[in-house]
C-alpha cells in the first residue's frame, strides 16, 4: 500500500509537470504533440548531470543542477517547435511528431556514441546508470521513499496557477490562445507570447522527463524513449480542461492506474485474479480513452490552438 501511494505520487508528479507544460503551450495557441520528445531530451540532460557531477558536492547541489539541466535541455529542444510553428507556420502536428522521433533517435545515437567512446567499443548500449546520484533525491520515512521531485511538481502547480491567473502575463498568454488577433490589436506581441508558452512547456516537459526516468529505476535505456508518457500527459491536460488544479486531480487519477501496473503483484486479491501483466500496462491508456470519450464533447480547448498566427489575417 505504501509502495502504491509512493508510485502514484511519483507518476502523478511526472504527469502533472508535463501536462502543465502542455497547458502553457496550448494556452498560448500552440499544440505541443512533441512533449514526449521534450521529455526524452530533458531526461537526457538530467541523466548526464547525474552521471558526471561528482557526488561530493552534496545532495542539494545535485538536485538543483539536475533540475536546471533538464529544464534547460527541454527548453532548448522546445525551440525547434517554436521556430517551426511560430515563425515558419509549419503544421504543428507534423512538427511535434517529428520531434518525438528525433528525440529518441538523437538520444540513442548520442548516448551510444558516448558509451562506445568511453569503453573503447566494448559497451555499445544506450544506457545511462545513475544509481548513486538518484539517492540524492530520496528521503526515506520508514518504507515510504519521499522524493524531492514531488515538491518540485507541487511548486510547479502553484507557480503555474499564479502565472496563468494572477499576473498580467497569464492573461496575455491566454488571450493569444483564444483570440490572437484581438490580443495583437491591443499591443500584445503574439509571437513573443507563443514563444514564452512553448518554452515554458519545454522547461516543464524536460523536468517531467528526468522525474519519469528516475521514478523506479537507477539506469535508463534511451532507445526506449518514455513509453508514451508525454501523450498520456496530453490526455491528462484535456481531462483537466486546461486548468492547473483540475490537471492535478487528473494526474493523480492517471498516476494511480499507472502505479498499479508497477506494484499489482503486492496485492493478493489482484495477484489472485491472475491477469497477464499486459492488462495492467494497458490500463492507463484504456482509462484515458474512456475519460476522453466521456469528456471531450464539450471541449474547453483554447479556441486558436493549432492555428499559426498570421499578422496579415486580421
Amino acid at each position: 500500500m505504501i509502495l502504491l501511494s509512493q508510485y502514484t505520487l511519483l507518476f502523478a508528479s511526472v504527469l502533472l509537470l508535463v501536462a502543465l507544460g502542455g497547458c502553457f503551450a496550448e494556452r498560448s495557441g500552440v499544440i505541443n504533440i512533441g512533449l514526449e520528445g521534450i521529455m526524452v531530451i530533458g531526461a537526457l540532460g538530467g541523466a548526464l548531470v547525474m552521471k558526471f557531477l561528482p557526488m561530493e558536492l552534496g545532495a542539494a547541489t545535485m538536485i538543483v543542477a539536475v533540475i536546471l539541466s533538464s529544464a534547460l535541455a527541454g527548453m532548448l529542444y522546445s525551440l525547434l517547435l517554436a521556430v517551426a510553428a511560430i515563425n515558419f507556420k509549419a503544421d504543428q502536428t507534423i512538427t511535434g511528431t517529428a520531434m518525438n522521433m528525433l528525440a529518441t533517435a538523437a538520444a540513442t545515437v548520442g548516448v551510444k556514441a558516448m558509451n562506445t567512446a568511453a569503453s573503447g567499443g566494448n559497451d555499445v548500449s544506450s544506457d545511462i546508470v545513475y544509481t548513486r546520484a538518484r539517492d540524492a533525491f530520496i528521503v526515506r520515512f520508514g518504507n515510504f521513499e519521499f522524493n524531492w521531485f514531488m515538491v518540485v511538481a507541487l511548486v510547479a502547480l502553484l507557480v503555474a496557477w499564479v502565472l496563468l491567473y494572477k499576473v498580467k502575463f497569464g492573461l496575455r498568454l491566454r488571450a493569444c490562445g483564444e483570440h490572437p488577433q484581438a490580443a495583437d490589436s491591443v499591443g500584445i506581441n503574439v509571437y513573443k507570447m507563443r514563444y514564452a508558452g512553448v518554452m515554458i512547456s519545454g522547461i516543464l516537459g524536460g523536468i517531467g522527463g528526468i522525474v519519469y526516468i528516475t521514478a523506479g529505476v537507477s539506469s535508463w535505456k534511451f532507445e526506449n524513449g518514455v513509453a508514451g508518457f508525454g501523450f498520456l500527459a496530453l490526455a491528462v491536460m484535456i481531462f483537466g480542461q486546461w486548468k492547473p488544479f483540475k490537471i492535478a486531480l487528473a494526474a493523480l487519477l492517471f498516476g494511480f492506474f499507472r502505479a498499479l501496473g508497477n506494484v499489482y503483484t503486492g496485492f493478493d486479491f489482484l495477484k489472485n485474479l491472475n491477469l497477464p501483466s499486459g492488462i495492467y500496462n494497458m490500463l492507463p491508456y484504456i482509462i484515458s480513452l474512456l475519460v476522453l470519450a466521456l469528456t471531450s464533447k464539450s471541449s474547453l480547448a483554447p479556441k486558436a490552438e493549432g492555428i499559426p498566427y498570421d499578422k496579415g489575417s486580421r
Binding site: 491508456y285 484504456i286 471531450s296
Partner: peptide, 15 residues
C-alpha cells in the same frame, strides 16, 4: 465523442 484522432490513435497504439 469529439476525441482528437491523434490522441485516440496514440492511446490505441499502446492498447
Amino acid at each position: 465523442c469529439n476525441v482528437n484522432v491523434v490522441i485516440s490513435g496514440i492511446m490505441l497504439n499502446w492498447i
